[in-house]
Design a protein around this nucleic acid. Sequence first.
DNA 1: AGGAATTAGTATACGAGATTACTATATGCT
DNA 2: AGCATATAGTAATCTCGTATACTAATTCCT
Lengths: 162, 162
Amino acid sequence: MAAAKSVRRTENERLKIEMEVEHTLGWLFPDIHRLLSKDFESRFVGLGLTRAQWRVLFTIDRAGVPLTQTEIADLTEIEKAPLGKTLDRLEQGGWIVRKSDPRDRRARRVSVTAKIEKAFPLAAAAAKGTFARALQGMRQSEVKELIAKLEKLKRNLGGADD
Amino acid sequence: MAAAKSVRRTENERLKIEMEVEHTLGWLFPDIHRLLSKDFESRFVGLGLTRAQWRVLFTIDRAGVPLTQTEIADLTEIEKAPLGKTLDRLEQGGWIVRKSDPRDRRARRVSVTAKIEKAFPLAAAAAKGTFARALQGMRQSEVKELIAKLEKLKRNLGGADD
DNA sequence: AGGAATTAGTATACGAGATTACTATATGCT
DNA sequence: AGCATATAGTAATCTCGTATACTAATTCCT
């Protein structure tokens, strides 16, 4: 009995060691995400926008045409329901306008307001500062390589190509 | 007037292009985190544990001795308040036990229960499957390189060395 | 010894995200 | 035309995480 228990212990000990790499690698993603948001938001102040909200706003602007909420959800890979909440906050802040589509009365086309224009310089400066810090000591070629690997990893997991 | 407006437009257009790389790189982190959790949890079923809960559980087990909540918070880089909630859920599920420290009556020492033993094989299999998928097409040396770069990035941002 | 500063943990409020269930409108098929 | 199916968006509920403020206990300093 003692022997059997000892064997099982050892097997789990082996598993724990095996799991170390995955554990380390896996948790780097949320950790870096959190640190990036924290740093970015500390620079991107005074507008009352979070990094997640900026992602949505930037995505809509980049499209160049009003988008339905479903289209925004696809582009940002956020589910429709929580995206709707984020859009509520952006609408309340005067950053976006929702107009019902005359050709599909279920849909609401979302477009950015002129207010976004003054946000670009601030967002650009914040992003530049954050990534200068994050990537310090890395050559541009290394950064490109890093992005390529991360995109491959994302694609492997079934994530959209963006 | 039209000229001035045109100039400002152009400046923001330039900024948008500049921001593309940061935007792409920055959002890879939460996206990959989300995909990893989704894949892992789809394999790690039947135990009623999320990936975040498993992180905490694994961390406590790895320490080998009962930890205070503050120590766990430091190791996982989660704030004490939300960690307390996660521990509530783990305690309710019978995964951990909280005993008040006789030498410091403010502290509650947390240890895992025997229940964790049967979770290791499942967690190991799930992690193995998820990362085999995520890292497919990458050599082991590339993975090591990737981890090193991500750890550097995290350190640059002030994250703990783990 | 006694008061000030620190520390452990919890409560509360908020943002972000997933999931499920629902309503209203479109579309597609027979 | 009419019914079945699919889609757009919202509501409700849950987990996870940040930040702030608070209580209780400890430590530090004079």
